[in-house]
């Protein structure tokens, strides 16, 4: 939360000027969008007649009605308590999205026949590739962070070269380099391990920086106190520094995990049957691409929502005792 002042200001959207502004802007935008030929125009048929025949006035009338609805909606929502505001706005945006998808004329029965396979094969593969990669990347990140903070020239040079290289090259290219390049050196590698390796190396590089910042944020007094009771480097790191860095490391790491979940779609280019691969291929035969893409998109999104919930739980856990 932003640190709130105790003075309560008036609700912005209840000021006549703001209300009028919202209404005017909505009216202009909706009118210019020319909505008479959409589902909204069809609903307006009793007023504007056959949408195909109606001219600019049809657009304007549709725009006017929508602008009124939007403005009233916003004004009403502003009366509600915070929790209800959040819920209702979410619901409305979701409905808007569904209308958008609905306009693609999707064939639900086709989705039904494929979705089970998408989940058992695609979602499962996406999940385990991402989970293994993020775990390995975290390990790599700890090593990288310690190396970057150390006074050992070799360690620092290798770690900074590593982060520079893997943050500096597109992930897609890393996947190709590993999958096609390693066999040139005599290491034949399967698509799944190649994908995991590429994701691990790439995200390990980003997370090195996250861990480094987390470690550096700990007060030097903690190191000194730890040393003064006889802890060596390993104990100090494991028992004192890393546990305290966790609240700082976890939010951005959760963020990275969510990003990786979707970046794992890039390994579809080397033929791993994860979500994205199935989304692109399952609809081919029946020319039903949109159905599969949207289904996959929804699955990615729901997964992300789950991760966001888990992340906020973990954050709360690390926040609880001392602060």
């Amino acid at each position: 939360m932003l640190h709130r002042d105790t003075v309560i200001s008036d609700i912005a959207v209840h000021k006549p000027k703001v209300m009028a502004g919202i209404f005017a802007a909505a009216f202009v935008i909706f009118t210019l969008m020319g909505l008479k030929d959409t589902i909204f125009g069809a609903l307006m048929a009793p007023v504007i007649g056959d949408p195909a025949e109606a001219g600019f006035s049809g657009n304007a009338a549709t725009g006017l009605v929508l602008a009124i609805l939007l403005t009233v909606n916003i004004v009403l929502i502003a009366f509600l308590p915070l929790r209800y505001q959040i819920g209702i706005v979410w619901l409305q945006l979701l409905l808007l999205f569904l209308t958008f998808f609905y306009s693609f004329d999707l064939k639900l029965s086709f989705i039904q026949t494929k979705i089970w396979f998408m989940i058992t094969q695609g979602l499962f593969t996406t999940l385990y590739i991402s989970a293994i990669s993020i775990a390995l990347a975290s390990g790599l990140a700890i090593i990288g962070a310690v190396a970057k903070l150390s006074s050992n020239g070799f360690a620092f040079a290798i770690a900074s070269f590593y982060t520079s290289f893997f943050r500096g090259i597109p992930l897609l290219m890393q996947i190709y380099l590993i999958y096609l390049g390693l066999p040139q050196l005599g290491f034949v590698i399967d698509a799944v391990p190649a994908g995991i390796l590429a994701l691990t190396l790439c995200y390990g590089a980003y997370m090195t920086e996250i861990f480094r910042a987390g470690i550096q944020s700990i007060d030097k007094g903690q190191w000194e106190a730890s040393r003064s009771i006889g802890f060596g480097f390993g104990l100090t790191m494991r028992r004192i520094i890393l546990p305290q860095s966790m609240p700082l490391i976890i939010p951005p790491t959760g963020n990275q995990f969510i990003a990786m979940l979707k970046d794992s779609s890039l390994v579809s280019v080397i033929g791993v049957w994860e979500l994205m691969f199935l989304a692109r291929t399952l609809g081919n035969k029946d020319f039903r691409h949109m159905e599969m893409l949207i289904t996959a998109a929804m699955i990615y999104w729901m997964l992300t929502v789950c991760l966001e919930l888990i992340q906020s739980r973990i954050e709360r856990h690390y926040k609880s005792p001392q602060h």
């Binding site: 007060d219 007094g221 903690q222 106190a225 003064s228 006889g230």
Partner: peptide
């Protein structure tokens, strides 16, 4: 270090 107990101005508890 274990033979010398150190107490800091800023406590430095964990």
């Amino acid at each position: 270090r274990t033979n010398t107990g150190m107490v800091f101005q800023q406590f430095n508890l964990f």
